[in-house]
Simulated scan of single mutants.
Amino acid sequence: MDVLSDVIAIMRTGEPRSARVEWRAPWGQQFPSAPGSAGFQVILQGTSWLLPPTGPPVPLSAGDVLFFPHGHGYAMADSPSTPVAEPQCDPAEIGDLFVSDSIAGTGPATVLLCGGYRLDPARTHPLLRDLPEVIHLPAGPGLPAELRAAVDLLGAEVHRPKLGAGSVVLALLDMLLLFILRAWFTAEHGRCEVTGWAAALADPDVSAALDAMHRDPAHPWSVAELGARAGLSRAAFARRFAALVGQPPLAYLTWWRLSTAGRLLRETDAPLSRIAGQVGYGSEYAFANAFKREYGLAPGKYRRAASAPPQA
């Protein structure tokens, strides 16, 4: 079981997209806001600058990784003084699974690997809501080896695809997202003052209870039983869990059960009775009522809406 992997599985919809773009100076590019998505930029070669909506420009060098978990807009350029052009490479709007292109002037080259993940805005997990506007993981000894390896493999596969590239790129994009978040939370755990979900994952007592809920959401968990898993009294556990996670244990359990049910409805054709049992409801009727309260739709209507082709 892995809470982080579970969260990504619930949030992700559709297939991710990626592009390897060679920018020749002078260049400046606006990347617009893309609600319901998360994007990344990796500097494969050369240098560039991140131009955030607020705050000073940030210098970037080869190997740096940027992650934008909330889909907010930003700009990048070869220099803070270069004018920024209208969007040409929006990670959220890349039509193909992966593309490779060359854009802009004739000066020194900067090669960026950009990409986007489509997320379900209706089921934003609080773990992701806690993340900052942008995560910057600088190149160097502190960058985890597995993240560097995923970047190198993904960049090479997108630039010169070989047999089976579609499957390889999809797997690498999933790995990259997990490695980015793992690196961020690992770095956060090492700080003196950690709050929110970073603190919840670092707390052995609360993480033990989260592990139990994610491992077996169908179990009829009580606060007392979860507290026993955490090695705490019922009251002490409830206080600590709510302080770190942001909601009481059983409220989070209900939210997680119904989020899991939503994914099963979208991605499988399992009957409602089986899904109800998998997420801890003793009857299809009880499950349907709880699901409708959470989503505003009956499970059957939700499944039909999720499977309907998009409107032209």
Rank of each mutant, 00 (worst) to 15 (best):
V151S: 10
L131I: 14
R118L: 15
I180Y: 01
L232S: 08
R182I: 03
P132K: 15
S167E: 12
M1P: 06
F237V: 05
P121N: 06
L176K: 06
A209K: 12
L153S: 14
E294P: 00
V99N: 03
A25F: 00
T106K: 12
H136G: 08
R257W: 08
I180F: 04
A235Y: 08
E294G: 00
F179Q: 06
V65M: 14
S48P: 04
L178P: 00
L253Q: 07
Q41Y: 07
R234H: 13
I275R: 01
P220F: 07
G262N: 09
P121G: 06
P56L: 14
A312K: 11
T260K: 09
M76R: 06
E188S: 13
A224I: 12
Y302S: 01
C192V: 06
L265R: 03
T106D: 08
R20L: 13
G227Q: 11
C192T: 10
L4D: 00
Y302W: 13
W27Q: 00
A145Y: 11
P144E: 14
L178E: 06
G246F: 11
F98G: 04
P132W: 10
G227C: 09
Q29L: 14
G190I: 05
P309G: 14
P249R: 08
A208W: 02
L113P: 01
A212T: 08
V99L: 13
C114G: 12
F40A: 01
D6C: 02
E133L: 14
K292R: 15
W184K: 07
V7T: 12
F291R: 00
L178Q: 05
L201D: 02
A165E: 11
T106L: 10
H70W: 03
P217I: 04
G28P: 01
T268Q: 07
E188A: 09
T186R: 08
P56S: 09
P32M: 07
S18H: 02
L172K: 00
P299N: 12
H219K: 15
L127T: 00
E15Q: 11
T268C: 10
H189Y: 15
G116H: 03
G277C: 02
T110V: 04
L137W: 02
L131W: 06
H136I: 14
C89H: 04
L131Q: 02
R274Q: 12
D211N: 12
V279E: 10
G277D: 07
D101V: 05
F40E: 03
D211F: 11
S5W: 01
A290L: 03
D2T: 12
P132V: 14
L297C: 00
S81M: 06
D90G: 04
D6R: 01
S48V: 02
A228H: 09
T195L: 08
P299R: 02
T124C: 05
A209I: 06
S233N: 08
S33D: 08
M175G: 08
I135G: 14
L170E: 10
L66S: 03
R12K: 09
G164W: 11
